[in-house]
Design a protein around this nucleic acid. Structure first.
Lengths: 217, 217
DNA sequence: TCAACCTCCCTTACAACGTAAGCTTACGTT
DNA sequence: AACGTAAGCTTACGTTGTAAGGGAGGTTGA
């Protein structure tokens, strides 16, 4: 499937794996299918990755590499804003990635460079070390959490109506969840509604709060 | 292993699965091991859960049931604060849960009741529907994201030093990540440092921001 | 009363997975 | 030409989720 002739390298393997996970979901990414995609046997992949965990680690690092680094020109707030929006966009493009970050305990070089650049932005803007830690934890928690919620959103992904789903619907009909019903009917189901639009509201609230904390601290 | 005599039911299966995932991690939760834990064969589990996905869905619902519901007595801010802290504590107790929420597209009854109660708290405090949606998205994104970061924290979980880890350490030594190094040496490695303490800083910043938005909106 | 029928457990079996082990091939150096 | 190494291949194994079917005990309807 890969059109480039010649020997394979790790990067091509990782890129193909990312593409496969994007297309069919992470659970359908197997060594054999990835081999087929690259025109080689599954076992040959082990010339480029140590094992599947290493493959997943590499994929995460690929994803981080796509996030726009803070340029450092503008003021910290707009730079942080752009970085956050880019991060969300990337995580939304690779829906499998956010949940995968869990067990990944060994970050790759691109990931570390990204973290370092963001910290550098904050420190350069005059944040104390402690305040930079606060800000980073807050911003990234929000970004990852939002991305995580976005992936789990579709209320029922078109699958057949299971017995459990029917039971839930019955509870809805019985008025057991009045506030959810209200939110769904009067807000979510409006034409043009897009949960992704929520992102910038929360982001700006957080950035404003940080700005206030920095100026008064 | 289960000491209760008599027939099994779904709840006991779910509880045992949660305990097993807590103890050994989600990846070691298999139908066979769960069967052993309950004193039955793997296939007998299918009398209580439809399949493994259903099992995982049920486990998530169990976790949500542990989160303290807003009592409704106090003002919205302290109620929301308590709920958020309880949620983080629960997710930290069940480290496998946050990442699992990804593909779980069909929330269980306990989960829905939880969401409904939080929305009810906000609406009861005078939040408009739109503002309640903002607030909920923001709070939960932060909670889940923080929990997600917490699980992936241990910089190296004591495993053998792989070649990749060595390469990373070499980059550290070469001063390639000055800001990360600074943060690590002057902040994180201080005695008594606990990343979990960051949670309340961000939470309060968010709640203050919401309060401001509500009073001026 | 007795036969039909659940419910909950069992055993057997299978395809798909990650990957250990070992072999072959092709290329860059010398 | 000789050789080391990198990158492919084949075979094989243990583990996974679960399809298929059987059997024991309790419940129910005629």
């Amino acid at each position: 499937m890969s059109d480039s002739r010649g020997r394979l390298n790790r990067d091509q393997v990782l890129r193909a794996a990312v593409a496969l996970a994007d297309a069919n979901g992470l659970e359908s990414l197997t060594m054999r299918k990835l081999g087929v995609e690259l025109g080689i046997e599954a076992m040959s992949l082990y010339n480029h990755v140590a094992n599947k965990v290493d493959l997943l680690d590499g994929m995460i690092d690929c994803v981080f590499a796509e996030i726009e680094l803070p340029a450092g020109e503008a003021d910290w707030k707009t730079a942080a804003r752009r970085r956050a929006i880019s991060a969300r966009e990337v995580l939304s493009r690779h829906r499998w990635a956010t949940a995968l970050m869990e067990s990944r305990t060994s970050p790759g070089p691109k990931t570390l460079r990204h973290h370092d650049a963001v910290l550098g932005l904050l420190r350069g803007a005059g944040f104390s070390i402690e305040m930079a830690a606060h800000a980073y934890s807050l911003m990234d928690s929000y970004i990852y959490g939002f991305a995580l919620q976005e992936t789990s959103l579709p209320f029922d992904s078109g699958e057949s109506t299971t017995k459990a789903a029917q039971a839930i619907m019955a509870r809805f009909a019985a008025g057991e969840y009045p506030n959810l019903t209200e939110l769904a009917t009067q807000h979510v189901m409006r034409p043009g509604y897009d949960y992704g639009d929520e992102f910038e509201y929360g982001l700006d609230l957080i950035l404003d709060g940080l700005e206030r904390a920095v100026s008064t601290g």
